[in-house]
Design a protein around this nucleic acid. Sequence first.
DNA 1: GAGTGGCA
DNA 2: CCCT
Length: 215
Amino acid sequence: MQENRVKSGVFATGGAEAIRLRGFDIHPGLLNADAQAALVEELRGVTKAAPLFSPVTPYGKPMRVRMTSMGKFGWFSDRSGYRYEGKHPSGVDWPPIPELVLTLWRDLTELERTPDCCLLNFYDSNARMGMHQDRDEADFSYPVVSISLGDSALFRIGNETRGGKTESIWLNSGDVVVMGGAARLTYHGVDRIRAGSSTLLPKGGRINLTLRVVT
DNA sequence: GAGTGGCA
DNA sequence: CCCT
């Protein structure tokens, strides 16, 4: 039997070594099937309390991806820009970040501070996300941790400025990516969702959780 | 005019 | 290419 790759030992079954790509640490299959299923179950309660919505971008188009958040802050955008908000657009508080997710963050980052935002992005099979930087947070010395659940996504990694050559990698259900250090401000996006590649979500699609220290 | 764009 |  292979050793668990996170200290708490509750997630991983072992398997592939981490892949490093342009400073992104990619942990294939870090969450085992049981952990993925348990997490999805918790997220059902989250989307019930704080339903998914499609934010409008500052230039007027609604995003393809639907989203909600957990934690003290949630990511939001409208005509006046990208930002974090203390409440869901319905006025309710964002639900708490699941303990399983916080444990994963602690194990991977070994930081004292835990994230104050866990953004949930839902991609249907046609959804994409253009190349962007995560730069709405106050302190870029904290990493961003990203968890993939459900259908596989073609993830594209660029550079610290727009343009230039890029590299792509398929992210599968249970994969976890840490974007820290120089990679913290690297452009990235999702080009494609592979419909039917996972049975985790009965109706298909992909959930991506991103953990951030916002303030 | 660039876009956490949309479409062909 | 189109649009905001």
